[in-house]
C-alpha cells in the first residue's frame, strides 16, 4: 500500500481569540483524512464547515494548531515552498491582477512556478479559447475561472486543490472547466481535492465524498458505498407518527403527515431490516425502503447536526 499523498492527522485549527481575547472559532477539530494518489475527493459541508481551511492547510498557507499534515510526504508548514511547487490551489475568487492581460498573467504565473509547462498551459489556453491580449478586468467571471485553471494546470501540479472554482458559473462554463480539471487529472494521475456545494458536479468527478460539519468529518465514503448504504425509509402510521428512538447511523427523521421519513446509514448488515422491524413495532402499517442520490444523502445529513463523536466512515 502506497503512502497517502495528503494526510491530515488529528488536525485542529482555529481562528480569532488572540491571547485569550475575543471569540475563538474552531474551523477544524481533530480532523483526520488520508487521500491516495489518483483519487478525486469531494469535500462538502455547510459554509464554515472547514473545507477551505483544510485546503489551505494542505498547501501550507495556514498552519495547524495541533496535529500533523503531510502532503507528498512533506510538512506544508515547514516546507511550504516545496509543497506549493507541486500543489495548485484553484479557488472560487480567482485572485487575478485586473490590470494584466491574459498573456501577462500567464507569463507572471510561469515566472513563479518552477515546474511551469508552457506547452500544457498553451494547450489549455487553446482548449478554453482564451485571448492572451484580453485584459483580465474585461473578462467575465467564467473566463477568469478558465484563466485561473490554465494557470493552475500550467504549473504541472501533482495535486489540485479546488475550492469551489465553478461556483457562480453558468452550466456551460462549469462543464468546460470541469472537463479541463478532469483532463488535467487524467494527464498527471494526481490527486484532486474538490470542495464545493455543487453536488452534481462532485458526483461527476469524485471517487470519495467527505462531509464536514463544524470542523469534523460527519460522513465519509466512496460515492457507490454512500449510495448503497444510505437509505430512506418511509413508515406510514395510522395516526401521527411517533419519534424514533436513537438508532445507530440515523441521519435524519421527519414527519410528513402520517408518514415518518427516516434517512439512515446502514452501518452493519441487517440494520435496515432491524429498523424496519422497529418501525413496525412502533405501529407502522407500511414501510418502504428507497435509494438516494448524493445530494439527498447530504441534505439529510445537513438537517441533522452531528453529535460530538458522531462520525461515519462508509
Amino acid at each position: 500500500m502506497t503512502a497517502p499523498v495528503i494526510e491530515f492527522r488529528e488536525v485542529t485549527r482555529s481562528f480569532g481569540g488572540v491571547g485569550g481575547i475575543g471569540r475563538r472559532t474552531v474551523a477544524l477539530d481533530r480532523f483526520s483524512l488520508a487521500i491516495e494518489a489518483g483519487e478525486v475527493v469531494a469535500l462538502v459541508g455547510r459554509n464554515g464547515a472547514g473545507k477551505t481551511t483544510a485546503l489551505r492547510l494542505a498547501n501550507g498557507v495556514l498552519w495547524p494548531d495541533s496535529g500533523t499534515v503531510r502532503v507528498l510526504g512533506l510538512d506544508p508548514a515547514a516546507n511550504g515552498l516545496a509543497v506549493r511547487e507541486r500543489v495548485a490551489l484553484l479557488s472560487e475568487e480567482s485572485a487575478l491582477y485586473p490590470w494584466m492581460t491574459v498573456g501577462e498573467i500567464l507569463r507572471f504565473g510561469a515566472a513563479l512556478a518552477p515546474r511551469w509547462d508552457p506547452r500544457r498551459a498553451g494547450e489549455f489556453v487553446e482548449r478554453l479559447a482564451l485571448d492572451p491580449r484580453a485584459k483580465i478586468r474585461t473578462l467575465s467571471r467564467g473566463t477568469k475561472a478558465k484563466v485561473a485553471l490554465a494557470l493552475a494546470v500550467g504549473a504541472r501540479p501533482e495535486i489540485l486543490l479546488l475550492d469551489d472554482p465553478t461556483a457562480g458559473l453558468d452550466p456551460l462554463v462549469r462543464r468546460e472547466v470541469l472537463e479541463g480539471i478532469l483532463a488535467a487529472i487524467h494527464d498527471e494521475g494526481g490527486a484532486v481535492v474538490y470542495a464545493s456545494h455543487l453536488i452534481h458536479d462532485l458526483e461527476r468527478v469524485a471517487d470519495r465524498v467527505v462531509y464536514l460539519d463544524a470542523g469534523r468529518i460527519r460522513l465519509e465514503g466512496s460515492l457507490d458505498a454512500l449510495r448503497r448504504r444510505v437509505r430512506r425509509l418511509a413508515a406510514v402510521f395510522a395516526s401521527d407518527p411517533p419519534d424514533l428512538p436513537h438508532f445507530p447511523g440515523l441521519l435524519d427523521q421527519r414527519a410528513d403527515g402520517r408518514t415518518l421519513v427516516v434517512t439512515v446509514e446502514e452501518r452493519e448488515d441487517g440494520a435496515l431490516a432491524e429498523l424496519s422491524r422497529r418501525l413496525q413495532g412502533l405501529g407502522a402499517t407500511h414501510v418502504t425502503i428507497e435509494e438516494l442520490g448524493l445530494e439527498e444523502i447530504l441534505v439529510a445529513a445537513l438537517r441533522h447536526p452531528a453529535g460530538p463523536e458522531e462520525t461515519s466512515h462508509v
Partner: peptide, 11 residues
C-alpha cells in the same frame, strides 16, 4: 485589491 492569494498560493 484581493490579489494577495495569487502570490500566497504559489511557491
Amino acid at each position: 485589491a484581493g490579489t494577495e492569494p495569487f502570490l500566497l498560493d504559489r511557491p
